[in-house]
Every structure is written in C-alpha cells, then in structure tokens.
Design a protein around this nucleic acid. Structure first.
Lengths: 278, 278
DNA sequence: ATGCCTTACGTTATACGTAATTATT
DNA sequence: AATAATTACGTATAACGTAAGGCAT
C-alpha cells in the first residue's frame, strides 16, 4: 500500500507547481521527492505524471489521483482531530446557563469537585440550552424551567433575587421596595452578559435606555462614578453600601427566580455530589 | 501524520484479537507491531488501547479509531482500484452489439486498426446498448436503429440476410424461397447467442421449439448430424453445401437488416477509420 | 507451563542528501 | 546562466528482529 505522506507530497506538487518548490516546502531534497513519486506510481501501478526532460506535469491519472488524495487526507486529518476532540470532551465539563450568577457559583464548585477536569461555561437562550444538553454539547445546564424529563435529572440549585442599587440622592432611594415599572423610562446601567434577565428588563421597562457594559470592572467604576440606577443580586457579594449606595428590594415576581441544574441521569453518579447553593 | 500501514495493523489487531496473532498474519514480529501501535498512539496524541500486563484491548478511543481506519483504508483501496480501472478503460475498446455476426466482424477489424488496444465485446438488448453508450461503458455499439442524436455518430456498417439451411430430404428444401411462418411448428436448431434474432424467431414462429446450443462447434456437429432446419447468414463463411445442405432464402423483411455503428462524436477521429463491411 | 505484551539492543533496509548529468528557458 | 528533473552513490535514520523479562491464565 502507498502511504499518506506520499499523498501529501502529491498535493504539495499540485500546490507549488514544481518538484523543486514542493520539495523545498516539504523540507525534503528534490531528488527524494522525485523518487517518492516514482514509488507512488509504482505502488499504484499507474503513471501520474507526464515527464519531459526538465518538466513534470500531472497527466489524466494524476489529476484523478489528486481528487482521491484530497479526500483521503481530509479523512485522515478528521480522524486525528475527532479522536483528540473526543478525548478532550471526556476531560471537560461544559456548562450552559441562562444567567451569569449561578454559573459563577457552579463553575468553581465543579472545579473543586473534579480537580482533573477542565470546566467550560457559556450563556445561551433557553432553547439553545435544551438543544445543547440533548446533543451532549453541555453536560449540565442551568435553567429556570423545572421540567421532569425521562433520562434527565432536574434539581433545584439556588434562588436569585434582584435589588436596585441607587445613590442616596435618587428620588426612589428611600422607598422600602419598588417595582421595575417604577424605573421605566430611566437610563439604567447593567452588565451586558445577564442572559435572560435582559429580556425581562426590556419587557418591564420598555421606555428605559440600557447602558450595557461588558467589562465587569469597568462596570464597577461606572457605578461608583455615576448616579445611574443599577442592579444587584443576592448571589454575589458586593460593597454597594460602602460605595454610598442603597439597595432597594424589587417586588416583581419575575426577579425572584429559582435556578435548576439539569443533566443526563447517566451523570448522576458524578453530578449528584453537587450541593444546592442556598 | 500517521501512516496507512498502521491503520492496516490496527484493523488486523481487531480482526485477530491479539498482537501476536495479528503480527503473525502481517508477517511482522510481535514487538514490531507493539511499537508500531505505540507510535500510532503517539502520533494521534491519543491512547487507543487498555494495556494490562499481558493483554491489550481497544479502549473507547480505539473503537472509535477503528471506524475511521476502515473508512480511510476503503478510500485508499478505492483510489488504487479506480486509477487502475481508469487506465485499463483507456486501453480497451468495449463493443456492445445486438447480434453476433457484425460483432465478429468488427472485433478483429478494430484489433487491426488499434493494435495496442484490447477489444472487448458483448451482446445486449437495444435498451442496454443505448444506456451503456450513454454511460461510456461502450465506446461503440452495433444496432439496427439508425437514429441521429446530438453528440453521436451513427453510420451504416453492414447488411445481414438470413437463410434457412435444410437437408435435401426436407419437404421445403426445393423451394426457391420461404418465410419464417412456413417453418412455424418445426423444431429448429440455432445458436443461443443470436441477440435480437431470437426475439424475431419467437415472434414469427410461436409454435416452434428452439434447440439452442451455446457452443458454436457443438452446433456445427449437430447440424451435420441432424436433419433439423437451422439458419445461415451472408456474414459468415460456411460450408453448408459441402455438408449436403441447401440454403433457401427467407422472404421476411425482418431478416434482412442493416446494422449501424454508433459512437460518440469525440471518437470520430479514431473510429472514423472503420470501413463499412458490405 | 504456555501465551501474551513490553523493553532493550544490535542490525538492516529503506529513504535520504549530495553530487553529477541532461535538458529547457 | 539559471531552473528543473533524473540517476548514481554513499549515508543515516527509522523500523525491524532477536533476546530478555514480567505477568496472567
């Protein structure tokens, strides 16, 4: 049987036009490449080139061979890549989440539970999360939908409540509680990667303008420097009080949510260890 | 990149179960095979086997790799086979014919015109001939249909007239001419590979019984030894008279046919040289 | 005790590079 | 003169076989 390296050489000759150039690119002497192609032809039992004295061109067979060679080389690279991806996927836990806060809690928790696995996480829409779980692109998803499904575990993970952070001078700063509609129309500062929260904000405050910042430390600076209302959550520690801001609870039921972990039953042995957060 | 021989070895290990057995079948020492698989794993960057002290089995990756290896090996063999078939097809002229006699004339004619080509011929139905010409399985077909078609050349090749060969004692032996229907009901001796002629015989002599012989020399013997009517044609030399048989011309228009050669216009340069036979 | 796999080591075979040759531009 | 391919020849590297060792059935 011929060898893959010879097919690679064949493709290089096509790519670079001459034996000399191809040999150079392949880090091979030109006579070595010449002989390698002679061996390939011998092995295939077929000529691949038209040989003039100082010129070599693909003949009809060679052109046909190039097509086959491309396919075989592609399949070979695919084999290598797929195997490596397969191994990597076995040592990686992929999380998909609908919101950032529970993801920030779960990620380090998993790293502690499975020290030799790498943990990868991303935020997606509810539909994409379910699809990703189905297709095994996520091993765990964090969702607000508590649905029992055959073959899946769905268990409560944590609750999140939102607050509004207001500077003392703000007209609403002294209220015991407010609803999102009270803020409608005002410019509001928020983190851009808030997942499904953003949909709720747009729905409840259709007249507000949202200043979305995707850098979390830049957001901190903006909060300190501005008088703009912004959100806080029970799930992340904060020092808003030190910043001379007050937290006012929100009354809307939509901003008091329960997050659920969802994963395949076959992972229960591993992921059963994950403890609920609050 | 890994090499095809390593994939072949991988498949052999799967096939024969142990390194030792596989090595033996591959005409290789067992340590050499062991190291070759270690190199394959190293090259892929992935383990393929579970290794106990004196036992080696495919792991999850290895099982996956086997699938890829099968595909790649298949594609490689396909490459080799297809290239060889392609070369062979270029040095072979395939003829398809609806009847034997013109084929027997054309075949040696082509061999003389193209001494370094091999000539292959077979008989098929009209439909299969057209299909084969379309799909380039035949370079030339011999047919009775004279149809002009774009991209195709269709030219007269020869005419064939059938005669009935009868022993002198036969009731019809003295007739100047007869029609096929005169013979209907009689047992008739004929060559089995007569192509479309057989369809005509069955149609014109529905009550006859046909003694089909597929060996042409055996047929000659039968003709000499029996008193059965049989057919003769203007296209092949015969010695029926010496055999004490007479030839009576047939009147049916169906047994006076013109054969046409049909081939792609692109072959006109080569096949234009073919001369009509009569 | 036999079968099976790995490691170690010396050897060989195969593919390599250099140099020489020929031809084309 | 420069570029390009093949052939010839000595060399080097990579894969091989043999031998040795360990483990399991």
């Amino acid at each position: 049987m011929f060898e893959l390296i010879q097919l690679e050489q064949l493709l290089a000759i096509d790519k670079y036009g001459t034996l000399s150039k191809a040999a150079q690119e392949l880090n091979l002497s030109q006579p070595a490449l010449s002989r390698s192609m002679q061996r390939l032809e011998e092995e295939l039992g077929v000529t691949l080139f038209d040989r003039q004295k100082n010129k070599i061109t693909f003949n009809e067979n060679g052109i046909l061979a190039l097509d086959y060679a491309k396919k075989i080389m592609f399949a070979s690279k695919e084999m290598k890549d797929s195997l490596q991806a397969f191994v990597k996927s076995k040592s990686t836990i992929s999380i998909g989440s609908c919101a950032p806060a529970p993801m920030w809690i779960l990620t380090p928790q998993l790293s502690r539970l499975f020290p030799d696995m790498s943990v990868q996480s991303e935020m997606k829409s509810f539909e994409e999360l379910e699809k990703g779980l189905e297709e095994n692109n996520y091993q765990i998803i964090i969702t607000t939908k508590n649905v029992n499904q055959p073959g899946m575990i769905c268990k409560k993970y944590c609750e999140e409540n939102l607050y509004v952070s207001l500077p003392p001078a703000h007209p609403l700063a002294l209220r015991k509680s407010i609803s999102l509609s009270d803020l409608d129309g005002q410019s509001i500062l928020l983190f851009s990667q808030v997942g499904f929260w953003f949909d709720i904000c747009k729905e409840k405050m259709p007249n507000s303008f949202f200043l979305a910042q995707d850098n979390i430390s830049a957001l901190d600076e903006l909060r300190k420097a501005s008088a703009l209302p912004t959100f806080a959550t029970n799930l992340t520690k904060n020092n808003y009080e030190q910043e001379n801001r007050g937290l006012v609870p929100l009354t809307d039921s939509e901003v008091h949510v329960t997050f659920y972990l969802k994963y395949r039953k076959s992972y229960e042995k591993q992921f059963g260890k994950i403890k609920a957060f609050n």
